[in-house]
Structure formats: structure tokens, C-alpha cells
């Protein structure tokens, strides 16, 4: 139960308006033909499931319907950062 600031709507709104959409920075492989079964499996099924500060995706389902990135503690649920796609990347997570 928390409030999320949508980076597009720029408003603090109830979590009920949003839907979680999984771990962030999981990019579809550029070279699908060359991937081994293990690498595909990791991409499709394996997750970090990090305990602590975790980058994830949310979608503003009942608002602007856009996806964005959230850094949230999976221990306290505290939201530490919100960003649009491209503002932070897997190479450059804050």
C-alpha cells in the first residue's frame, strides 16, 4: 500500500491505479539465433528477486497507461526513485 508518482502524469497517486510489471532492465536478446538454451531460460524465467532496493517496472493502468521504472525497497516498500524509460538503464542504475 503506497503512493507512486507517475513520471508522466507528475502526480502522486494511489498504488491501486498502477499495476506492477516485473523486474526492470530485462532486455530481449539481440542475437536470438546464437543463444543457448540456458541463456534463453535465464532471459525468460530466471529473475533476480532481489531483497533490498529493487528496480522494477510499473504501468499507470488507470491513468496514462504508460510503463515506467521504479526503484523500490522490497523490504520496506519505500519508493526511492521513479524514472521514465531511458532516464536510467541497467548500465547506469542510480
Amino acid at each position: 500500500m503506497f503512493l507512486i508518482v507517475c513520471p508522466y502524469c507528475k502526480e502522486s497517486r494511489d498504488q491501486n491505479e498502477f499495476s506492477p510489471a516485473g523486474e526492470a532492465f530485462i532486455a530481449r536478446p539481440q542475437n536470438p539465433e546464437e543463444l543457448s538454451d540456458d541463456e534463453w531460460s535465464d532471459y525468460v524465467f530466471y529473475r533476480t528477486n532481489h531483497k533490498g532496493d529493487h528496480w522494477e517496472q510499473w504501468v499507470h493502468t488507470n491513468g496514462c497507461r504508460k510503463y515506467f521504472l521504479v526503484k523500490r525497497s522490497t523490504i520496506s516498500h519505500e519508493i526511492l526513485e521513479v524514472a521514465a524509460f531511458g532516464e536510467v538503464t541497467s548500465e547506469n542504475p542510480s
Binding site: M1, N16, P20, E56, R72, T74, S76
Partner: peptide, 14 residues
């Protein structure tokens, strides 16, 4: 379950 990841042993009111 709640859709988001958590280790907090508490979930959403909704």
C-alpha cells in the same frame, strides 16, 4: 498475492 515483489510479510489493502 500482490503482483509486486516483496519480502515485507505484509500486502496491500486492496
Amino acid at each position: 498475492i500482490d503482483g509486486y515483489n516483496s519480502y515485507a510479510q505484509r500486502g496491500s489493502a486492496k
